[in-house]
Design a protein around this nucleic acid. Structure first.
Lengths: 95, 95
DNA sequence: TTGACATGCAAGTCACAGCTTGCATATTGT
DNA sequence: ACAATATGCAAGCTGTGACTTGCATGTCAA
């Protein structure tokens, strides 16, 4: 509920990897995510662990889930990250 | 050392309040920070707690410390936050 | 309907983050 | 020199987060 949970959500490396995965390929299912996290991100977490991470990301508003039959497709929403950019003055990249 | 610690550093609400404080008034000393965090942010942490938070923020590169005599002035550096902006595609604010 | 597949729920374990406590070090003013 | 000020170091306590384990629910294909 509190939007401050964005920071807690981003605190875990596995959750950041999930966001990376969904950024590259949107609408993945739980099993898809588990497989790709294992092969491409060297993450050995169980299915339940990933599921709990997805719950947390959903609560933070960073992931939207869409159910279709026995599948559940997950979409990343990076809009809440604007709260970080708006909160502190991030300096320009110096060229 | 690992730059991923930015996320761990931002995970704690007290540390975010410290960054807020330093963003508003740069170059504060440890005691100054403690006082202002108590009065303006309703944070009741001890001096040692704040000191440890500052160490962590320093390790993450978000705070630079500058010693002068018996005082130590702290400056916020939000440059590392660019890693967040660059990592994921944050959508535009829709007007 | 039955079995295989995809996901959900809940309790228990364990390591670590944040805090405190107590003492140590270092600098300034008188 | 001495006391007050500002900070540093290290060990111990405790709640919580990440993970596992085991079972339950729900959906599709044959």
């Amino acid at each position: 509920m509190p939007p401050d949970d964005i920071f807690a959500a981003l605190a875990d490396p596995t959750r950041r990897a999930i966001l990376d995965e969904l950024a590259e390929r949107d609408g993945q299912t739980l099993f898809e995510l588990c497989a790709r996290l294992t092969t491409r991100h060297s993450i050995g977490s169980s299915r339940q662990a990933i599921s709990q991470h997805l719950d947390l990301l959903s609560a933070a508003g960073l992931v939207k889930a869409e159910r279709s039959g026995r599948y559940k497709f997950h979409h990343a929403d990076f809009g809440p990250l604007r709260a970080i950019v708006d909160r502190w003055p991030i300096p320009e990249e110096r060229t």
